[in-house]
Write a protein that binds this DNA or RNA. Sequence first.
DNA 1: AGATCATTCAATGACTCGATTGAATGATTT
DNA 2: AAATCATTCAATCGAGTCATTGAATGATCT
Lengths: 229, 229
Amino acid sequence: MSSENPKRSVFAGFAEVAKALGHPHRLEILELAAQGERSVEGLAEQARLSVANASQHLQLLRRAGLLASRRDGKRILYRLSDSSVLELTAALGRVAERNLAEVRELIGGYFREHDALEPVTRRELTRRLKDDLVTVLDVRSEEEFAAGHLPQAINIPLRELSRRLREIPKSREIVAYCRGAYCVLAFEAVALLRPRGFKIRRLEGGYPEWRAAGLPVIYRQNGGALVPA
Amino acid sequence: MSSENPKRSVFAGFAEVAKALGHPHRLEILELAAQGERSVEGLAEQARLSVANASQHLQLLRRAGLLASRRDGKRILYRLSDSSVLELTAALGRVAERNLAEVRELIGGYFREHDALEPVTRRELTRRLKDDLVTVLDVRSEEEFAAGHLPQAINIPLRELSRRLREIPKSREIVAYCRGAYCVLAFEAVALLRPRGFKIRRLEGGYPEWRAAGLPVIYRQNGGALVPA
DNA sequence: AGATCATTCAATGACTCGATTGAATGATTT
DNA sequence: AAATCATTCAATCGAGTCATTGAATGATCT
């Protein structure tokens, strides 16, 4: 970031941030870190990266101001530095979805085919929750659920869903959610449960968006590695 | 953008967009194109790039869905593809300003020193304009002004400002604006005029933000290369 | 039809980025 | 104090990016 011309330098700084977003693995890491604090190893595993590689990406994201980290015992925990980062990735998604034919096809084709119906808005879910009219289903991993989840949500990770159908009430309407607007888990849950007779829709966005909107969340400090941010 | 895993592909598409934002020259080009349609040569000149280099950047931005282009006679005119792009760059600015110490210093130091006062909000300017209480000063180039400007604005490009002081009423309050939130022209105008006894503040954001907010703008089709988008 | 002109293309060289490997660090635990 | 473990560092290689140069398009104008 060479200086002299202030405007150029500001743009250079902005470009650093944008460059940090410019790699698929890093975008995935950001989505994972948005669920709550995670160790390098945990993130590497979930993103299917080697630990060294994940560490490099994480450091780059931290230098760009997108992630923050702290030490906890012998691990380093990374988290989203700020909810403005969520707004940035959301804006990135909107532009890509609107202006890139390839992305639009992927989302319009794959995603919509799994869930023709509009998602439930956060506002609507809040209202319904107050009257206790819905069952909220969190299909993320147990660690992510433990790090924070929607009030009254039950947790069944997607891969266990087909084995644990009896835990889900068939009489009430179900709202499924996962990691974010472009996380496929909730789509898959809808695709899996609807043909089996469940009344299920998915939530707009995921847990990070819910939390960033200032809506109530539940933390469960269960001695694990994940702590509410 | 290799396929198979839909989620990976979506992230790959997002990364393409982010990569396109990941170069200072391209961010500058985006700011310039946000003022209205411009030819390759015009953009190259304003950004101080060779035509071939600018052309390459422009094509990359178009492939990423950030710019759109059309032919007009023997030139190709580029424009912002969508106002969602403005939201994206605004979000990028907010994150960089908040989380990158270098950028925060630049903006907090250089910019604020030139204008300690808070900018005038768009809402406030709208109200004041209705009562005809302010003079609006556009310090961008004549071409940019011609391509679109705020109602009742007068145009004095920054480099001519010190020679044309008599055109500016000293009795009324002045609101200066330029290309955007991180464009230095309006800051410089404030720094130049305030010591000379003018009551001057700058507008939050610039012309593109005003227009994207749905507020009224004036086009002047004067046969030049710039046409309202 | 040929000349003109804006833009794009293609090729080059310097530089940066990404993933892998194996070693180094540095805090914790025994 | 030594062992352990998560993370980071350093070196490497292949691939990709950026600016420059000069040539090639391809639409307009005479």
